[in-house]
Write a protein that binds this DNA or RNA. Structure first.
Length: 323
DNA sequence: AATTAACACAACCGCATTGGC
DNA sequence: CGCCAATGCGGTTGTGTTAAT
């Protein structure tokens, strides 16, 4: 049973490509092209490789005009902007960066850029909670497990906003979400948490007590959704509910959350990059992303700020640019 | 100098999508 | 319209290199 393999695994070489294999593949494709059939290509060339492997090697390494490493600041900005807008659609992001491959950008994001933009912030959040209660510390750990593309995008978005309005992020007693979230962010949190199989109880408390009235701003499309009660939020303090139980008790169907996700994706697509005309009603919330240059300016400043602060590990905290 | 940890990048895997029949 | 092979794509793993101890 199961899937039929694309090639005879037993007679196929795996692992790093040798210079000879590279030369054979490159020469053949440059002379004759792929012939529209990657599966048959290895046999024609006389190398013991899977067709998919040949395709990957060509696209990611051997193809002419491929750039490796040395990402410029402008490329960083584009990657960040697009990641916030569309998430981990690496092929689309790569299409905006001539000479870059999706694999290269993905690796660059996962190993460098993400850490640069998110990793340090998480560390900052955790350090702020030193001295907090055990329950609160557990909540931070829970937040780590929450990390996914959408959540990272939300974090990036919030960070950009807090840079835009640093005053907003100060002076609140909220533990994890000290800044006032704009309605779409509230909605994203609400949606993400309820979709999550293991929602973070602290965030749930926030979104269930503070979120609903903000979410209502986005009506009428969600008038049909019964708002979760504050009692439910209190219960989250006592025990960690599964996301499914929570959804069930909130009286919300799964497809309604998917609508949330779609709307959020659509919203971010409209606001993050300047590819689609802006929705007038929501423009004021994301004016700083209305043009790509504005986003670039912020990202450039942010990147410089990070570099300037990276020498001393504590200085970042004192700047008040966090949540 | 040896060992271990962290990092960067190449390559693989398997699911989703596409297109021909 | 459904089936199936080829291709595309994103997540994950493997491997080589460098830094730290």
């Amino acid at each position: 049973m199961g899937r039929t393999p694309c090639c005879d695994k037993a007679n196929v070489k795996k692992g790093p490509w040798s210079p000879e294999e590279d030369a054979k593949l490159k020469d053949y494709i440059q002379k004759y092209g792929t012939g529209g059939n990657w599966i048959a290509l290895p046999q024609k060339i006389g190398i013991k490789r899977c067709g998919k492997s040949c395709r990957l090697r060509w696209l990611n390494y051997l193809r002419p005009d491929i750039k490796h490493g040395g990402f410029s600041e402008e490329e960083d900005n584009i990657i960040c902007s697009l990641y916030i807008s569309i998430g981990s659609r690496w092929s689309i992001i790569a299409a905006q960066l001539p000479g870059r491959t999706d694999n290269d950008i993905k690796n660059y994001w996962n190993t460098k850029l993400k850490k640069k933009l998110l990793g340090r912030h998480k560390q900052t959040q955790a350090s702020r909670l030193i001295g907090s209660t055990t329950q609160e510390s557990n909540d931070v750990n829970g937040l780590e497990t929450l990390s996914n593309s959408a959540f990272e995008r939300l974090q990036l978005h919030m960070q950009l906003q807090s840079l835009q309005n640093p005053d907003i992020s100060q002076g609140s007693s909220k533990l994890m979400w000290p800044c006032k979230l704009n309605p779409i962010q509230e909605k994203m949190l609400w949606s993400l948490q309820l979709l999550n199989e293991s929602p973070n109880p602290l965030i749930m408390q926030h979104v269930l007590t503070d979120g609903p009235q903000n979410v209502e701003l986005f009506e009428p499309s969600y008038n049909h959704i019964q708002q979760p009660s504050n009692m439910l939020a209190n219960q989250m303090n006592d025990s960690i509910d599964s996301g499914l139980d929570c959804r069930k008790r909130a009286g919300i169907e799964f497809h309604q959350y998917l609508e949330f996700q779609d709307e959020i994706d659509q919203f971010l697509s409209n606001k993050g990059a300047n590819f689609i005309s802006l929705d007038q009603a929501q423009t004021s919330e994301f004016e700083y992303l209305n043009d790509i240059d504005g986003a670039k300016d912020i990202m450039t400043w942010w990147s410089n700020e990070f570099e300037a602060n990276s020498a001393s590990s504590n200085s970042w905290d004192s700047n008040g640019h966090g949540f």
